[in-house]
Design a protein around this nucleic acid. Sequence first.
DNA 1: TCTAACGTGATACTCAGTGTCAGTCGCGAC
DNA 2: GTCGCGACTGACACTGAGTATCACGTTAGA
Lengths: 205, 205
Amino acid sequence: MSATPVGTREISRHAVRAELARVAFNRFCLTGFDQVTFADLSEAAGVSRSTFLRYFGTKEDVVLFVFDPVGDVIADALDADRANQDDWSRLRNALESAVTFLVRDVQELVTILGLIEQTPALCARLREKQAEWRPGIVARLQKTTSSTDGSSVIAHVRVAAALECLWIVLGQWSASGGDEDLGELLDAAFAAFSTPACQQTHAPS
Amino acid sequence: MSATPVGTREISRHAVRAELARVAFNRFCLTGFDQVTFADLSEAAGVSRSTFLRYFGTKEDVVLFVFDPVGDVIADALDADRANQDDWSRLRNALESAVTFLVRDVQELVTILGLIEQTPALCARLREKQAEWRPGIVARLQKTTSSTDGSSVIAHVRVAAALECLWIVLGQWSASGGDEDLGELLDAAFAAFSTPACQQTHAPS
DNA sequence: TCTAACGTGATACTCAGTGTCAGTCGCGAC
DNA sequence: GTCGCGACTGACACTGAGTATCACGTTAGA
């Protein structure tokens, strides 16, 4: 699924990329994203600036490339979950898959999210990625729903709303240091679409 | 409300800014946003590169500064509409105010939206602006709703979802060349939150 | 073992965006 | 009227991201 590396060259590339990202990430956390230059990074990693730039197209990608598979994860989860017929439930479950994919090391993810949150450039690029995922996810959501309704605005809106939930929830979660339960947070966020739409003293906890 | 210019300096600045933007916009439409440099723009406008950069912090702002007041427009509309108690209805009406503010010249707006759509950098920056509006809008939405619930995730989600609706609807609308009715499009989009959440052959044409 | 493809470093380049400096202009105070 | 202050302007220099090219070394694979 996630770029299964085959062939020694591919393996090597993957490993180098990971190492460069690791070194760079430390620098970013230490000094701040904007203050660090490619020259700094390449020096710290012991490669030339040219080489560093070959592994990551932009400085943002050095941090955000870990999110690249999320779009596919969500889309695949939607496919696997044909049983459920409710759009919102399916999206909620798909997001659960996304967070499960992301949360390997709690501490690391919290740190990354913190870095992103306080760096406008990273926020912007992440939103861009999110927008790129949307068409694919919409297609999967519609495939099993009613006969393809040409340009169903509804599906687009629901997918967009669900993806916003993802970031809002992750923001909440990282603000709590990774203590809160992501499943409950997702439920609380999705309650926005199911409760009466007027005031409500929101759900549990 | 929207930067009422007072004093000759302010008037002048406002006018120059508008003129520079006008000249630049033509260039962008003609050649493509990425192909045009500040050097081109300043030459075309008959001012120095320094001066041009003083009026617009970034190249994106040359196009997108017209959207700056939208956040306040939405927030103010929410304030004015205390009668309505339903979150979704209030947001929908506030978005109506936003589009009314934006649609002065149909043809011009369609052109701008087209340019934005086919320029990733502009899309990204616009999303960033949208994210900046969110906190203010959330505050206005909550002010009249239930006693401030500390960190009501629900309000955040609803505002985020509503803002996504705005862009999805504007995208639809500009794709139709500005023919479709924006009110109906908004209704169709907001139906995503009120219909049974399963399949539905969506509302009126 | 040979060779073609690939990774690398060095270098040069374009362009966005920042900062500085000196000259100019508008405007109110005296 | 003119003096001085603050804002606007153009010229210039600078940093840093991202692109492109070239020559060299290494390695995969026949």
